[in-house]
Design a protein around this nucleic acid. Structure first.
Lengths: 206, 206
DNA sequence: ATAAAATTTGATTACTTAATCAAAAAAATG
DNA sequence: CATTTTTTTGATTAAGTAATCAAATTTTAT
């Protein structure tokens, strides 16, 4: 809770363990990412992990939090370089896809946790509520709202449009093998598609 | 391999075990879905699972295959009710989302496997190549190609557009909590967005 | 009905797991 | 420099894992 009481060593060690956790998740996946495997990659004993984290679940949760913070900061920083919704949206899409391309390890680890971890009531993390929780979704909705208000975007449902954009972004990491596309090309294509879908027209139709 | 050699009992039992596997995956997730848990839900002994399936991996793989076949058949059957690309696309989107809404258990189990299972070389299933393998993606691409050829759709890259559509569909199941939208409403919104994005215009711009 | 074959089980196997704990090592304190 | 506190380890624990196997049961064929 209160990290001000922790020494530098404590914080550094925790950080090291979290990094080893991320590496392990990327290497061998959630199922096989045991404390022993994580400890091996951190070159420490398993007991030391238990000393710094109350639980395996705790370790996973803190790793997840670190991963979310890192990617969120990366994306939102680039997004708000601009002040107009059009550029912000383009930045958002590009940064989101660029993050995946430049941080494959972190991205894989994030996926592993989100799609494997469950609450004590066995509710998968990926089914947990969005909106107020997910700052990326909120930022995206805000940008769409702004563009809608100032008449730049033509959007029926901001929520659904946000989901479509999120889906297009999320799909990039699932592209494997033959039809692999460069991140920049994919970003441009997606931005173009979304832009076309929201283009304001002369005569309004239904 | 050759299922013609299997007796009815064998096939029925295998089917029962696969169903129990799906239920277990939905209930408690991939990590905790042990043979014991699956056996409990099928009201049989764990050894019987080993008798009918060579491996746990084998059981998971056969369950996955069953799940993919089921959803693919459902979606493609509804899709090809029509013969024109426009209706086919609308059908495809609607059927894909409807399947998720009407088969939550199967859908959850499919997710659990795809995002947890790995090959012997530790490659996650979700990273395995698409295209030739995934009949849904192929069908979607064909529909887009058809519409493009006959001048109904305006698409730069069929591959990317297909991914955007897949992403929008896949995102539906991740909508949890407050902003839950009815499947039909979501389908209509998505179809509308995609249609707008592919609308053929009068004057061609760059 | 009886023998043979297929199916099912309970018990056991060898392993891996997360977590605990006393003791050792290292760091901080007076 | 001595002592107290923090950090780290190795060994152990109890529980759970997939898989095996001989024996029991059921089904099928004769």
């Amino acid at each position: 809770m209160d990290s001000s009481k922790n020494t530098f060593i404590q914080e550094a060690r925790k950080q090291q363990i979290i990094e080893a956790t991320i590496t392990t998740l990327d290497d061998i996946g959630y199922v096989k990412a045991s404390l022993a495997q994580i400890a091996k990659r951190a070159s420490i004993s398993t007991a030391l992990i238990s000393y710094h984290f109350v639980d395996r679940q705790d370790l996973i949760n803190q790793s997840l939090q670190a991963l979310i913070e890192q990617s969120t900061t990366f994306i939102l920083t680039k997004t708000y370089t601009a002040s107009d919704p059009v550029t912000q949206l383009a930045n958002f899409i590009e940064a989101s896809i660029a993050y995946q391309a430049t941080h494959p390890k972190e991205n894989a680890a994030l996926l592993e946790i989100v799609f494997n971890a469950r609450t004590e009531q066995d509710i998968p993390y990926y089914k947990l509520p969005d909106e107020e929780e997910d700052p990326l979704l909120k930022a995206l909705c805000n940008i769409l709202e702004d563009g809608k208000k100032q008449g730049t975007f033509s959007v029926r449902s901001v929520d659904v449009m946000a989901k479509v954009i999120q889906g297009a972004i999320g799909e990039y990491m699932l592209i494997g093998g033959p039809l692999a596309i460069a991140a920049e090309d994919y970003s441009l294509e997606v931005t173009n598609i979304i832009w076309t879908a929201m283009k304001v027209e002369g005569p309004k139709n239904a």
